[in-house]
Nucleic acid binder design. Sequence first.
DNA 1: TTGTAAGCGTTATCAT
DNA 2: ATGATAACGCTTACAA
Lengths: 328, 328
Amino acid sequence: MAATIYEVAALAGVSPATVSRVLNGAAVSPGYAAKVREAATALNFRPNRTARTLRRQSSEIIALIIPDIENPFYTALARGVEDRALAAGYSVVLCNTDDQHDKEARYLDIAISEQMAGVVLAPASARTDIDALLARNTPVVTVDRSTHGHAVDAVLMDNTDGGRAATSALYDEGFLRVACITGPRDVETADQRADGWREVFTAHSPRVKAENYLRRANYRVDGGRAAMADLMRMRRPPDAVFVANNLMSVGALQHLLSIDMEPPAIGLASLGDLPFTTWQKKGVTVLPWPGRRLGLTAADLLLSRIGGDHGPARTIITRGSDEDDPTG
Amino acid sequence: MAATIYEVAALAGVSPATVSRVLNGAAVSPGYAAKVREAATALNFRPNRTARTLRRQSSEIIALIIPDIENPFYTALARGVEDRALAAGYSVVLCNTDDQHDKEARYLDIAISEQMAGVVLAPASARTDIDALLARNTPVVTVDRSTHGHAVDAVLMDNTDGGRAATSALYDEGFLRVACITGPRDVETADQRADGWREVFTAHSPRVKAENYLRRANYRVDGGRAAMADLMRMRRPPDAVFVANNLMSVGALQHLLSIDMEPPAIGLASLGDLPFTTWQKKGVTVLPWPGRRLGLTAADLLLSRIGGDHGPARTIITRGSDEDDPTG
DNA sequence: TTGTAAGCGTTATCAT
DNA sequence: ATGATAACGCTTACAA
């Protein structure tokens, strides 16, 4: 059914090798080249990438592995990766891990066994194991989060600084007790953002045990809502809260509205834009968290590795407050 | 670097065929099987899927091609497809077309030339051409939208009914002039949703030219905002609006809040949940638009086709108002 | 049950 | 510039 280069060759009156050369832009006499192209369209020929990949030992596909496809931060990141990759002639396939190591391992395996050109990975946790990829010299760039014990390029945000900046902003507005809702226990970004918060909190309330005002949730809307509710049930509730990611901020805000505590009656600072927000009133502080930019940068690094760059591993850290040109 | 079944075979003292049999669960004596597995782990062997696909003429990967990865409706749909596919032993790769036919064509080509097991496709428009896929007997299921002139399975929402139901709901609430913001011109869902609206609108305002109260936008937030603004600038603005998708509803609501016209001062009905909404007040009517359910169904159909079902093409149409078990 | 060997559709090497 | 041919790593008749 599907035509091969043999059939194209036969129709064009040349050898399969010549057809291949035409397809790959090698030197072929114009006459033959034309004939081949004609034959190819006549037969509706599509090169078999599987065979090509097998022979070449590498495909032209980049895997982008992310923990939560429903989080707009990661879809923005995906757009960034896509834009650069497509421009460079690579295609991007997206793989969603749901923050589960088994799903993630499965997709990492696929990246290997499909001989993908490279992988942009936002790891489920620092324990994610990419040795198998590296053993096969598949370029890997981690983004948003890093992995332990691997010398690979990483494109990260300055999470500690983000926590500090957002928390400070609330104190600067005059709030007196800023709580923190951060992410799950074994996710490094969650710890770092909380670290930044703790530093500022402790400076303002040296006598108060910071941990009392710290909550951990799942980086999703429901988690933020529950954590916010929990904080408000405290004997002495905070008068402001730093929420460590976009979705949990939505949840936190939802809870606050439900109990009629609209910001700025209570302070709220979010790391990352509230997606699709219909929130009009001022009172919510947002620290930009440029997913698309991260994706662009990660793709650039990956493409340079695919291109043969064997220099030492690079780590690029961006501060949320640095954001200048969001369209970058 | 990467071990092959030949090396595993050598280490285990068997033939490559036996290794393959162990890997694929064919009948092999337990002793050999154990030895093979041992050798495989010792060499950190990963089967080369490229070679397998080339030989078998089909991979175990399903492509899911969607027009807008940033729309939560499609990411929910993706989750549905994923859940079913992973359970059946297939992996899902997501491809984002941005509603652009060239990007879409590229991914369709890849699906062919990577010999993917099947494709779940939400077409950029009805003009999307899937003949090449069908010519190669790659199972295709379209979802959310259909394509013209192809006899393939389709999983659709009843868009006309949705438009009718949402519009009627507004009139039932007592609004007198319900405008409509629908999607782009060449997207069938946009026309159908508008058709449903037009029917109800005309019944209530037989003298008024319906088209005056119809706006088309891009199914995204900015489009909804602009269209809403445009409607409100009319000499005789509507007192309610039916918005044909989730993201445009967000945009419309944003505009209304910005001019201090909070629902229910003006009526707003949305086809599909407002994503990540922080909108508390009542006054927005939401017709469920179950993306995940669509994904589950589409995957089921596709898997049955992959499994060899050659029956006539099926079209499954769901009504938004039918929604019973959103967790499906 | 196990092994041998052909073949999947390319690309790349080597002659010519 | 072009063609013949081996090779990529696996699966699957077919034989034993």
